[in-house]
Design a protein around this nucleic acid. Structure first.
Length: 797
DNA sequence: TGTAATCTAATGAGCCTGGA
DNA sequence: TCCAGGCTCATTAGATTACA
C-alpha cells in the first residue's frame, strides 16, 4: 500500500501531486519504522500521539501506550548507546514525554503493568546513564534479545495497524467529493493552480503514469460535446425560446431530454459518491480549516508544520461545535488574550494537574508558580499552548467551581466535577459544604435530606481515588443504591456551554443526573442545549413533521407536534419555543446557503444536518450551485456545495428494502424500490411508506461503538445515523461494551435502541455488534468487531 | 417570516483581601 | 512579597423578543 514499484521511484515533488499529503506522511512514517531509523522515532511518536489524542478510539489504551512508549523507548536507548548523547539532559525530555503519554491516555483505571513497565524502564535508563560497564553489557547482551527483531516486529505491527486505521478513517475523497467540497471563491483556482506552477513534477508524474499504462483512450463522445457548438450557433431570440422551453420541461419531466438524463445520471452518481463522503463532512470542514491555517505557519519550521498539518488537535477543537476556532488555535500562548479552554484542553489540564507528582509539588510548597509553569510546559508538549498565568487562572476557576458545587449543589453544576473530585476531595483545604455536609478525607458527605433525594459521594483517600476513580452514588434510604463510574456520571463536555446550561435548581441527585450526560431530560425549559437542538433537528427532519409543515401555511399544529415529540424524549419546549428555534436555525441555514464560504457555514453549526431536509424545501434560496428546486424535485444536485446527504445508494443494497413512495392526495402515486431510487425524492412533499418489511427491519437501531469520548467520530456517526434513519429502514448495529454516556447521547436524540429495550441501559455490558450491511460498515468509519454472528443477535432481540 | 435589538449565561481575566 | 480565595468585570455568543 505504501510502497511503489521498485525501480520506478517518483520524485517527491511529483508524488505530492499524486498522493494525498496525509498518506504521503503516513508512508514516510512507515518507512522510518520499517527501516528502523530510530533517531526519527521521535517524530513518528509525536505524530502518533497527536492523532491518538484526537482520536482516542483509534487504538486501545494498551496499543497506544505500547506504540508511543515503544517508539520513544527505542529512541532513548539509541541515545543511551552513544557516549555523546547519553546524558540526563538529553534523555530527560524523552522520559517526561513517555510519562505524559501514559497520563494522557490513561483510562478510568490505572494499568499497573504499564506503570510498572515505565518504572522499570526509567530505572534501566538511569542505570545505563550511571554505569558505563552495565551499559556496555546491556547493549551487547540484553539489547539484541529484548529490543531486537521481535521488538521491532511488534512495533511495526502496531504502527501498521495505526496507519491503516487512520487511512480508513480518512479515506481519500473521490473527484466528485472534492468538487462538491471545494468552495467557489475567486482565489481557489489561483491557490490550487499554484501547486502545479512548476511543470516538471507534473510532467514526470504524467510520464510515470503513461509508462504504467494509465493513459486512457478518448471516451465515447457524449451528448454534451455537441451542445456547445449547438449553443454557439443559436441566435439570441432562439436562445430565449429555448430557455423558456427548458424551464417548462424541467417542471414537467426530466425524462424527455436525453442529455439531461445523462446529466442526471451523473448527478445521481455524484450523490452516491457523496454518500460516502457525507460522513466525512465534518472531517472535511475541519481539514479545510487546517488547510487554511497552514498558511499561517512559516516555511522554515518544518516539524512544527508537520505536526499541525497532520495533527488533529485542531480538528478536535473545531468540529465539536462546528465553529472555527482557528483564530485562537494558531496563536502562541503569549499572543493569546481572552482565549477559551476547550473541553479537551481542560481535560488535559486536569489530567496533568491530577498527576501525583504535580499534586505532590503543589502540596510541598506554598509557592506554586513553578508548578503552574510545569503544567504549562506539559500542556505545551501536548500541543496546548497556555501560559503559566492562564493555567493558574483556569485551575483557580475550576477549583472555585468545584468548591461552589460542593457548598451549594443547587448552584450551576461544575463541569468535570467528578474528575476534580477524584483528587480535590482529598485536598485538606477543601471547604465544608453548607448544604451537602462535610467533606473530609475518606469521609462521606452528609446529606441535606430536606432537599429530597441526594447523593453521598464517598471520598476515599486520594491514592485510592487515583486507582479506582469511582464515585459512589447513594440514594436516600428506600432507594436502590446506584454506582456509577465517574466519567459516566458527571462529565459533560464543556463545549456545551456554547449551547448553554444555565443554573438549575436541583437537588444534588438531580444535578448528578443532569451532569451525567445527555440522557436525562432537558430540564431547563428556556435554553436549547446541544443535545436538545440535535433532538429538535431530528424531530424536525421526520417525514411526518416535514409533511405537516408543507401541507399548510398555518404551521402551529406542526410546531405543536414537534413540541410533543420532544416532550416524549424528555425535552420540554413549547411550540413557540420550537417555532422560534426552528426559525432561527432556518435563517442560519439560509445565510450559510447564501454565503457558502467557511465563515458563512460557521454561522450555521448544524448545516449538514439541516441540509439533509431543508435543501429540498421549495422556499430555500437558490444558492450558488446548491441546486434548484422545482415542483418538488431537485433538478440539480449541490455539486458546488457541501456533500450531499442522501443515502440512496444504500437502497440499492437490498432488494428486500422495498420502499413504496406514496404521493399525497391528489398527487400521482408512484412506486419505487431501492434499486430504482434516483435519490431525488422530495421528502416534504411525498410520503414514504415502507411496506412488507418485517418489524425487525423497521425498527431503527443505533450503531454504537466505543466512541464515547471521541467528538469527531460521534459527530460523524450522528450525522450518518440521522440520515440513515430517514432513508433506510434496515437494521444493524451495535454495541457494547460501551460507555453509558455514548449510549445516552443517542438515546437523548430520540434514537431507539432495540436491543436495549429489555434491559436498563446501565445493565448492558457485553452485547454484540452485528452489521447487516457491508456497505454501511464501510461507511461508518468505525472499528466494529464482529465477534459474534447474526444468530447471536436474534438472541439479543 | 425575517431581522435587529435585547436578554442571558458562560467564562477568562483581573482586582482585593487575608495569610504564610 | 507572593499566593489563594472570593468576587467582579468584560467579552462572547446563543436565545428570545419585538417589530416591519
Amino acid at each position: 500500500m505504501f510502497s511503489f514499484q521498485p525501480g520506478l521511484p517518483l520524485p517527491l515533488s511529483s508524488l505530492r501531486l499524486l498522493v494525498p499529503p496525509l498518506r504521503l506522511v503516513s508512508a514516510a512514517l512507515w518507512q522510518v519504522v520499517q527501516r528502523r531509523d530510530t533517531m526519527d522515532y521521535g517524530l513518528v511518536e509525536e505524530f502518533a500521539t497527536t492523532v491518538l489524542e484526537m482520536i482516542p478510539d483509534l487504538m486501545s489504551y494498551r496499543e497506544k501506550v505500547q506504540l508511543i512508549m515503544g517508539l520513544r523507548a527505542q529512541l532513548v536507548l539509541e541515545l543511551c548507546r552513544s557516549d555523546c548523547s547519553a546524558d540526563p539532559e538529553t534523555i530527560q525530555p524523552h522520559l517526561s514525554r513517555m510519562r505524559t503519554c501514559i497520563i494522557t491516555h490513561r483510562e478510568k483505571e490505572i494499568d499497573t503493568e504499564v506503570e510498572a513497565s515505565e518504572s522499570n524502564f526509567l530505572e534501566l535508563v538511569q542505570t545505563l546513564l550511571d554505569d558505563p560497564i552495565e551499559r556496555e553489557h546491556f547493549f551487547q547482551d540484553v539489547f539484541p534479545e529484548e529490543f531486537g527483531s521481535s521488538y521491532d516486529a511488534a512495533l511495526q505491527t502496531l504502527m501498521w495497524e495505526f496507519l491503516i486505521r487512520l487511512e480508513k478513517l480518512l479515506p481519500t475523497p473521490t473527484f466528485q467529493q472534492t468538487v462538491s467540497w471545494l468552495r467557489p471563491a475567486p482565489s481557489v483556482l489561483k491557490e490550487c493552480a499554484h501547486s502545479v506552477t512548476q511543470p516538471q513534477p507534473l510532467k514526470t508524474l504524467l510520464q510515470h503514469n503513461r509508462c504504467h499504462g494509465h493513459l486512457f483512450t478518448n471516451a465515447p463522445s457524449s451528448g454534451a460535446d455537441d451542445r456547445i457548438l449547438s449553443s454557439l450557433s443559436h441566435s439570441l431570440s432562439e436562445r430565449i425560446e429555448m430557455d423558456i422551453d427548458e424551464a417548462r420541461s424541467q417542471s414537467q419531466s426530466l425524462s424527455t431530454c436525453a442529455s439531461r438524463k445523462e446529466r442526471d445520471t451523473l448527478i445521481e452518481h455524484d450523490n452516491v459518491e457523496k454518500e460516502l463522503g457525507m460522513s466525512l463532512d465534518t472531517v472535511k470542514k475541519a481539514v479545510e480549516m487546517v488547510d487554511g491555517r497552514t498558511e499561517e505557519w512559516g516555511e522554515n519550521d518544518y516539524e512544527e508544520r508537520l505536526r499541525h498539518d497532520l495533527a488533529y488537535d485542531v480538528l478536535k477543537v473545531e468540529i465539536v461545535d462546528g465553529e472555527d476556532m482557528s483564530s485562537t488555535s494558531s496563536m502562541t500562548a503569549d499572543d493569546v488574550g481572552w482565549t477559551c479552554w476547550t473541553p479537551e484542553e481542560t481535560k488535559s489540564l486536569i489530567s496533568i494537574w491530577s498527576d501525583e507528582q504535580i499534586l505532590h509539588k503543589m502540596e510541598q510548597s506554598y509557592r506554586k508558580k513553578h508548578v503552574y509553569s510545569e503544567i504549562s510546559e506539559c500542556l505545551k508538549e501536548l500541543g496546548i499552548k497556555k501560559t503559566t498565568k492562564q493555567c493558574h487562572n483556569k485551575i483557580k476557576a475550576l477549583k472555585w467551581r468545584y468548591r461552589e458545587t460542593l457548598r451549594n449543589p443547587s448552584s450551576r453544576p461544575c463541569p468535570f466535577f467528578s474528575k476534580l473530585h477524584n483528587f480535590l476531595a482529598a485536598v485538606p483545604d477543601m471547604p465544608e459544604s453548607k448544604e451537602t455536609g462535610k467533606v473530609s478525607d475518606g469521609g462521606v458527605m452528609s446529606l441535606d435530606r430536606d432537599k429530597g433525594p441526594s447523593v453521598a459521594v464517598e471520598l476515599a483517600p486520594q491514592r485510592e481515588k487515583m486507582v479506582s476513580r469511582k464515585v459512589k452514588c447513594k440514594t436516600l434510604p428506600g432507594e436502590q443504591a446506584n454506582e456509577k463510574k465517574e466519567d459516566e456520571t458527571f462529565c459533560i463536555p464543556q463545549s456545551d456551554s456554547k449551547m448553554k446550561s444555565p443554573p438549575q435548581k436541583h437537588c444534588r441527585k438531580q444535578m448528578v443526573e443532569d451532569m451525567s450526560s445527555t440522557t436525562s431530560a432537558d430540564n431547563d425549559t428556556r435554553t436549547w442545549t446541544l443535545e436538545g437542538t440535535k433532538a429538535l433537528i431530528s424531530v424536525w427532519s421526520n417525514k411526518q413533521v416535514l409533511q405537516m409543515m408543507e401541507q399548510s401555511y398555518r404551521k402551529k399544529h406542526a410546531y405543536s407536534e414537534v413540541s410533543e415529540r420532544l416532550k416524549v424524549i424528555g425535552i420540554k419546549r413549547t411550540w413557540k419555543q420550537c417555532q422560534s428555534k426552528m426559525k432561527h436555525m432556518k435563517h442560519s441555514y439560509r445565510q450559510a446557503l447564501r454565503n457558502p464560504s467557511s465563515s458563512g457555514r460557521a454561522t450555521c453549526p448544524f448545516f449538514s444536518e439541516l441540509h439533509t431536509f431543508l435543501a429540498n424545501m421549495p422556499d430555500m434560496p437558490d444558492s450558488k450551485g446548491t441546486g434548484k428546486v422545482s415542483d418538488g424535485e431537485v433538478l440539480s444536485s449541490d455539486q458546488d456545495e457541501g456533500p450531499s446527504v442522501e443515502l440512496e445508494h444504500l437502497h440499492e443494497k437490498g432488494a428486500s428494502r422495498k420502499v413504496k413512495v406514496k404521493a399525497l392526495p391528489g398527487e400521482q402515486t408512484e412506486e419505487r424500490n431501492g434499486d430504482e431510487s434516483d435519490g431525488r425524492m422530495n421528502i416534504g412533499r411525498k410520503q414514504q411508506v415502507v411496506e412488507d418489511v418485517p418489524d425487525l427491519e423497521l425498527q431503527p437501531v443505533v450503531l454504537l461503538t466505543q466512541l464515547d469520548d471521541n467528538s469527531l467520530m460521534t459527530d460523524i456517526l450522528i450525522v450518518y445515523l440521522e440520515i440513515l434513519f430517514r432513508h433506510v429502514h434496515l437494521l444493524f448495529i451495535v454495541i457494547m461494551p460501551i460507555d453509558f454516556s455514548a449510549f445516552t447521547h443517542f438515546w437523548n436524540l430520540g434514537f431507539q435502541l432495540l436491543c436495549l429495550s429489555a434491559r436498563p441501559p446501565d445493565a448492558i455490558s457485553d452485547l454484540m455488534v452485528v452489521f447487516l450491511d457491508e456497505e454501511i460498515n464501510a461507511c461508518c468509519l468505525c472499528r466494529v468487531h464482529l465477534t459474534k454472528t447474526l444468530s447471536s443477535f436474534s438472541l439479543i432481540k
